[in-house]
Computed example of a mutant assay.
Amino acid sequence: MLLTVSGPPGSGKSTNAELLADRFDLDHISGGDIFRELADERGYTPVEFNELAEEEEQIDKDLDRRLRTIAGTQDDVLLESRLAGWLAAEHADLRFWLDAPLDVRAERIAEREAKTVAEARATTERREQSEAKRYADLYDIDIDDLTIYDAVFNTARWGETTVPDLLTAAVERYDPEQDEGKQPVEGVRYEF
């Protein structure tokens, strides 16, 4: 089984992806963890590395190639990243998008990163603008197009104790035999 969990920073995707992977005994591969490791190796903060990636498209291509390869070659995996649903579109059994209002996400990020809410909000807005531009330029992906996802959840509305149960219920009720066939996402170019 291949599941994807995507969403913007502070949406709860990492927390929920980890719980979902544990519940179904899946390997949890986090694109964010890989990205932060690459940034740290090169001596950048994630925000600085995002901005560098605007100039050096190979950064995104390397990360995305790794995630796409995992999606196409490994079984029993949960991929978590902003683009996981797009990158694994041909292989994923289910694709989830998690989100929350920016104010809620900024509070969550501020708490986990020991920043002020204003700092977290500004950093998050800058990061999201950078990523949206890169995704559009590199792959012709509109990150705001949620039509490729099987389910979309507002984690602020449902809360941290309910969202994992909703995701679990969706996976448990999924019947691959009733799947009409996986259709690649139209108009997206994957050039690595």
Results as ranks from 00 to 15, higher is better:
E90N: 11
Q178P: 00
A120V: 02
D165C: 05
G10P: 00
A17Y: 00
Q58G: 08
T123V: 10
A151K: 12
D33C: 06
D60N: 15
V5N: 01
A17I: 02
T45A: 05
E18W: 10
R173K: 10
A169Q: 14
D144T: 15
R121T: 07
D64T: 05
Y190K: 12
E177N: 12
L83G: 01
D145N: 13
R134Q: 15
A122C: 00
R112L: 13
V77C: 02
I29D: 01
G43A: 05
R36W: 06
E37H: 12
I141G: 00
V77G: 02
R108W: 04
V152M: 11
R66S: 14
R36T: 06
A92N: 01
P46H: 11
W158R: 01
V5P: 00
A88H: 03
G32R: 03
T155A: 07
V171R: 07
T45Y: 03
P101R: 06
L138M: 12
M1H: 02
D75C: 02
A71I: 05
G187C: 10
L102H: 05
F153Y: 13
G72D: 06
D27E: 15
L2A: 07
E113K: 11
K182W: 11
D165G: 08
G85S: 11
A132I: 07
D144W: 09
E180R: 14
L20G: 01
E56I: 09
A84E: 04
D144V: 06
I141M: 05
D165H: 13
A136S: 15
G32Q: 08
G43R: 03
